[in-house]
């Protein structure tokens, strides 16, 4: 491998590690939040209504994540513009 290949390989592996860690945390949180919400009283099996709730909850949680991320990014950029973090 030459310098460029080493660099690209490091970048690829780092991105893979970060992205899979991010996905893992998201799935863990979805499991926790949607189980809490959709299966309040666990029965002897997962009812079909509970299964539907879990899939809808998952989609909803991901939409919420994207909304929160977009708002947070906008706010950070705004605060950097205001120098809010450096002045305090």
């Amino acid at each position: 491998m030459d310098s460029d290949a080493v660099k690209k390989s490091i970048i690829r592996q780092a991105l893979q590690a970060t992205n899979s860690a991010n996905a893992r945390i998201l799935i863990e949180n979805i499991n926790e939040k949607c189980f809490e919400r959709c299966v309040p009283k666990p029965g002897s099996s997962l009812a079909s209504g509970e299964q539907t709730c879990v899939t809808q909850c998952m989609e909803k949680y991901m939409a919420a994540w994207n909304e929160v991320n977009a708002t947070y990014l906008r706010r950070i950029q705004q605060e950097i513009g205001n120098n809010a973090f450096t002045n305090t």
């Binding site: 919400r37 959709c38 709730c53 809808q56 909850c57 998952m58 989609e59 909803k60 939409a63 919420a64």
Partner: peptide, 11 residues
Amino acid sequence: CVASSIRNGEL
């Protein structure tokens, strides 16, 4: 913010 019961996958 997501307090009501979940009826669909959208916000």
